[in-house]
Structures are given as structure tokens and as C-alpha cells.
Computed example of a mutant assay.
Amino acid sequence: MTTGKEATLHQRILSDIEGQIVSGAWPPGHRIPFEMDLAEQYDCSRMTVNKVLTQLARAGLIERRKRSGSFVTHPQAQSAVLEIHDIKSEVLSLNLPYSHKLTKLVKRNGRAEDARRLQYVGSLPVLEITCIHYAGPRPFCVEDRVINLDAVPEAADADFATLPPGPWLINQVPWSTAEHQIRAIAAESDAAANLDVQKGTACLVVERRTWSAAGPITHVRLTYPGDRHSLVARFTPSS
């Protein structure tokens, strides 16, 4: 059985190594310190270190080689990449003032819908957030988000009325994987009211999940009026 102290140490080692990789301090091909060295550094058993490295390998962040050690993996080529942009930067690029309004903040136990959104099996505490982002006086988009509080417990005490959850999360916790889904919808009553458009107006929805080696971090649904937003991806031919 894993004790609370062991679980906390496991998370600390995991976060430290993941942070070095995601920040670029340990680039692709970098050799991770050997298990015995990490065990000595953190004053723990090699079994604890082994579990951390196994979790990082399953997340695709490192590659473990027999008799050679563990190495930071080289990123896999993608046909196109959609970056995580800051909504405030998008608005300012239009030469319009940015603001946001927090309309919902609820800490609760996860439901089946949250498990689907986070792609998580089981139950976990979540923070449910709704924000309206403005470009000048007009709504720019509506943000509906759930945050896994097991992965980011600090979110429960964050002041999202001052700083939106998107940039707060980027500054708070490193993510290793992201997934985007883009689709068109006809605005339902709530979305239409928040965006100040007619019910049934064509809208663009961008859904994004992010993970770290420790599991899912957040799922966000961004809804934009269809006539006010477009997505552009620039890419080059694969070699």
C-alpha cells in the first residue's frame, strides 16, 4: 500500500522531471539521471523512482533503454499543429480592449459528463468554470471549462475573476499533450444569451483537452460567433 508521504514524493519527482522536459531544459535525447542517482537525490527508494520513470515512459515523454538508461523522447511529426493561444492576445491583435467576466465557479464531485470530457475512468473532484471574454463591448467567446482538482489542487483557491483560467493554468502546471476538436453548432439558448446573438446563430466551437504525465488537467469548450472568428494553421510539407 502506498502511503501519503510516498504519494507526495512520487508526485514531486514526477513534476520535477516533467517540468525539466516540458520547459526544454532537458531537450530530446537528453539522458535522465540514473535511478540510483535520483533515489539518492530525493532520499527515496529506487522503486519509487522506477514507478515515476515508468509513468513518464507511458506518457511518451521518455524512452527507457536496457543497459543505457532513460532519455527524453524526440517529438513525433504532425501533419498540422494548432497552438494554444491566449484569448487576450487574440483580442488585442484586433486592436480592441480585452476584458472577461466570471459567471460560474463551482467546486464539486465529478459526474459522468466530466469523465467523458476529461477522458478519465472513475471519479474525481472538479472545478467547473464559465467565463465570457469580451473584445471591446461585445462578447468575443464563451469559455466553459472543467479542471481536474486532483491534478491542480491550487485551482480551488485561484482568483479567476482577476486572471482567466487559461493563462493561469499555463503558468501553474506544465502540460505534455493537447488535443483539439473543432466543430460548428447552432447556438442554444444559454450560448446565444452569453454571446448576445440570436438562438440558432452559427457558432464555431473549439474543444481542447490537456494532459500531463500525472493524468488529465483540463477540458475547455470555447464557443465563438461564427461570423467573428476563424482558425488558421500554417504547416510545411512533411519530409
Results as ranks from 00 to 15, higher is better:
residue 174 P to G: 12
residue 152 V to W: 07
residue 148 N to I: 02
residue 83 E to V: 15
residue 87 I to T: 11
residue 165 P to H: 15
residue 169 L to T: 03
residue 147 I to S: 02
residue 136 G to V: 10
residue 145 R to G: 06
residue 94 L to E: 14
residue 68 S to D: 01
residue 153 P to I: 01
residue 58 R to Y: 12
residue 88 K to H: 11
residue 142 V to P: 00
residue 87 I to N: 05
residue 159 D to S: 07
residue 127 L to H: 08
residue 162 T to F: 03
residue 71 F to C: 08
residue 97 P to L: 05
residue 137 P to Q: 13
residue 142 V to Q: 09
residue 80 A to S: 10
residue 107 K to V: 10
residue 87 I to H: 11
residue 162 T to C: 02
residue 144 D to Y: 03
residue 85 H to W: 13
residue 134 Y to F: 12
residue 90 E to P: 02
residue 147 I to P: 02
residue 154 E to F: 14
residue 145 R to W: 04
residue 142 V to M: 07
residue 91 V to M: 08
residue 88 K to I: 02
residue 95 N to W: 08
residue 87 I to M: 09
residue 151 A to W: 03
residue 116 R to K: 05
residue 87 I to A: 10
residue 71 F to R: 00
residue 104 K to A: 05
residue 108 R to E: 14
residue 142 V to W: 04
residue 138 R to K: 13
residue 117 R to S: 04
residue 127 L to T: 02
residue 163 L to S: 08
residue 155 A to K: 12
residue 135 A to Y: 00
residue 172 Q to G: 04
residue 115 A to V: 05
residue 106 V to G: 00
residue 100 H to M: 06
residue 116 R to M: 09
residue 58 R to E: 10
residue 89 S to M: 08
residue 158 A to T: 05
residue 59 A to M: 07
residue 75 P to W: 04
residue 123 S to E: 01
residue 107 K to H: 06
residue 85 H to G: 13
residue 151 A to L: 15
residue 133 H to A: 04
residue 174 P to Q: 03
residue 177 T to R: 15
residue 79 S to R: 15
residue 174 P to V: 14
residue 163 L to F: 04
residue 175 W to S: 12
residue 175 W to T: 06
residue 159 D to T: 14
residue 79 S to Y: 07
residue 86 D to R: 10
residue 151 A to F: 03
residue 166 G to F: 02
residue 81 V to H: 11
residue 133 H to I: 00
residue 90 E to N: 10
